[in-house]
Simulated scan of single mutants.
Amino acid sequence: MRWAARAAAVATALILVAGCESESEKEKEKEREAAAAGAAVCLKDAKAAQLPDGFPTNFPLPAGTIVTSAENRGDAGLVIEGVTNTAFKDVLKGLQDDLPAKGFTLKNGETEPHDAESDWTSAEFDGRWAIREMSQCAGETSVSVVARKK
Rank of each mutant, 00 (worst) to 15 (best):
residue 35 A to E: 14
residue 36 A to G: 10
residue 36 A to S: 14
residue 37 A to C: 08
residue 38 G to A: 11
residue 38 G to Q: 07
residue 39 A to S: 12
residue 39 A to H: 06
residue 40 A to I: 01
residue 40 A to T: 05
residue 40 A to R: 03
residue 41 V to P: 00
residue 41 V to L: 00
residue 42 C to S: 00
residue 42 C to V: 00
residue 43 L to S: 10
residue 43 L to N: 06
residue 43 L to G: 06
residue 44 K to D: 10
residue 44 K to P: 05
residue 44 K to A: 12
residue 45 D to V: 03
residue 45 D to F: 03
residue 46 A to F: 06
residue 47 K to C: 03
residue 47 K to N: 07
residue 48 A to I: 12
residue 48 A to P: 12
residue 49 A to C: 04
residue 49 A to I: 03
residue 49 A to T: 07
residue 49 A to G: 07
residue 49 A to V: 07
residue 49 A to W: 03
residue 49 A to F: 02
residue 49 A to D: 08
residue 51 L to N: 07
residue 51 L to A: 05
residue 52 P to V: 07
residue 52 P to F: 05
residue 52 P to A: 04
residue 53 D to M: 08
residue 53 D to R: 12
residue 54 G to S: 13
residue 54 G to K: 15
residue 56 P to Q: 02
residue 57 T to E: 15
residue 57 T to V: 13
residue 58 N to G: 11
residue 58 N to H: 10
residue 58 N to R: 09
residue 59 F to H: 01
residue 59 F to M: 01
residue 60 P to E: 04
residue 60 P to Q: 03
residue 60 P to G: 02
residue 60 P to T: 05
residue 61 L to N: 01
residue 62 P to M: 11
residue 63 A to R: 15
residue 63 A to I: 12
residue 63 A to T: 14
residue 63 A to P: 13
residue 63 A to L: 14
residue 65 T to F: 02
residue 65 T to L: 01
residue 65 T to I: 03
residue 66 I to R: 10
residue 66 I to D: 03
residue 66 I to M: 09
residue 67 V to T: 03
residue 68 T to V: 15
residue 68 T to A: 13
residue 69 S to P: 04
residue 69 S to Q: 12
residue 69 S to V: 09
residue 69 S to Y: 09
residue 70 A to F: 06
residue 70 A to I: 06
residue 70 A to L: 05
residue 70 A to E: 03
residue 71 E to P: 05
residue 71 E to V: 09
residue 72 N to K: 12
residue 74 G to L: 00
residue 74 G to D: 00
residue 74 G to M: 01
residue 75 D to R: 11
residue 75 D to C: 02
residue 76 A to D: 15
residue 76 A to W: 10
residue 76 A to L: 15
residue 77 G to D: 09
residue 77 G to C: 13
residue 78 L to Y: 01
residue 78 L to H: 01
residue 79 V to Y: 13
residue 79 V to N: 10
residue 79 V to L: 15
residue 80 I to S: 02
residue 81 E to V: 06
residue 81 E to D: 15
residue 81 E to H: 14
residue 81 E to Y: 12
residue 81 E to T: 12
residue 82 G to K: 00
residue 86 T to W: 07
residue 87 A to P: 07
residue 87 A to R: 14
residue 88 F to T: 10
residue 89 K to M: 09
residue 89 K to E: 13
residue 89 K to W: 09
residue 89 K to Y: 10
residue 90 D to E: 11
residue 90 D to A: 10
residue 91 V to I: 00
residue 92 L to S: 05
residue 92 L to F: 08
residue 92 L to R: 06
residue 92 L to E: 08
residue 93 K to N: 08
residue 93 K to Y: 05
residue 95 L to F: 09
residue 96 Q to C: 04
residue 96 Q to H: 09
residue 96 Q to D: 10
residue 97 D to T: 13
residue 97 D to W: 02
residue 97 D to F: 07
residue 98 D to N: 11
residue 98 D to R: 04
residue 98 D to T: 08
residue 98 D to M: 02
residue 99 L to W: 02
residue 99 L to M: 14
residue 100 P to C: 08
residue 100 P to K: 08
residue 101 A to E: 11
residue 101 A to L: 10
